[in-house]
């Protein structure tokens, strides 16, 4: 049973993000990149399955991009068996659908029984990868997975709904799973191991050709929500305060089933 975990870099949202001069993308000059947090969950789940003997190997794959080498070495340090970098020659940002097409092409030369990836990423406003990849490969897919068990030719997964309700689904392999959370928190990769692997391990590469551009909605502009530095105070009588709070909740869409 070969597991492939598809990971990607995303801009580190801990850092200040600026909108680029043309307003069509974030400014990518000074930002740093980190592994998509949900991909970390996907990797952890795969590694746990391997340690439990449910799977034989874990291969991580990523489209080439800034910071991707670090991410792949970190994945190796955590225990992945192999790392593959998919060379494509495109400039960021790469639409998710193009990502799916490039990965589907690359996966032709990578043996796999089950593909894991993160349920979503910080910049996939044009659709999540798991369903797009499933559609591109003609595999079944499940998003928002919080547990995986492997049985003969099947993955038995739990998919989580609001309020903790879960559906236990069985999926025929090969399949694509969008992982929301691993059964345990992602493990630590000691820096010395990462640094040692950077000297000794090699990242495999697979080259794929450019895809014809996928249909997409056109970006008009990016903006940052106006953030007030300090709180806006809700004042007045008790009734007014309560009404004020309710309208804040309502505007944020967190008030359920009212009216």
């Amino acid at each position: 049973m070969n597991l492939v975990v598809v990971v990607r870099e995303v801009p580190d949202i801990q850092e200040e993000l600026e909108v680029a001069a043309d307003g069509k993308d974030i400014d990518r000059t000074f930002i740093s990149f980190v592994m998509n947090e949900f991909d970390e969950q996907a990797l952890e789940e795969a590694l746990v399955l391997k340690e439990e003997g449910q799977a034989d190997s874990v291969l991580v794959a990523a489209l080439d991009g800034e910071g991707v080498d670090d991410i792949l070495y970190t994945a190796l340090a955590k225990g992945a068996d192999e790392a593959v970098k998919v060379i494509h020659g495109l400039e960021p940002p790469i639409p998710t659908r193009v990502r799916a097409a490039l990965l589907a092409a690359a996966l032709k030369s990578i043996p796999h029984d089950l593909i894991f990836t993160g349920v979503q990423s910080a910049e996939d406003w044009d659709g999540q990868l798991a369903p797009l990849l499933g559609a591109a490969l003609d595999y079944p897919w499940v998003e928002v997975v919080t547990a995986v068990r492997l049985e003969d030719g099947l993955a038995v997964v739990e998919k989580e709904f609001k309020g903790g309700l879960r559906a236990e689904l069985e999926v025929r392999l090969p399949a694509v799973l969008g992982i929301q959370a691993a059964t345990k928190p992602p493990r630590y990769a000691p820096v010395s191991r990462i640094r040692q692997l950077m000297r000794t391990a090699t990242l495999k590469t697979v080259e794929v050709n450019e895809m014809s551009p996928a249909p997409a909605a056109k970006i008009r502009r990016l903006s940052r929500p106006v953030a007030s530095r300090s709180a806006e105070f809700i004042e007045g009588s008790l009734d007014e305060v309560v009404e004020g709070l309710l309208s804040v909740f309502r505007n944020a869409g967190v008030l359920r089933g009212e009216g």
Partner: peptide, 19 residues
């Protein structure tokens, strides 16, 4: 959890844009 499977899936199957 419901829409995430379906929205991008339909977009992928039909080649339609997704937001």
């Amino acid at each position: 959890a419901f829409g995430m499977d379906v929205a991008a899936g339909i977009g992928g199957l039909l080649g339609w844009p997704v937001v």
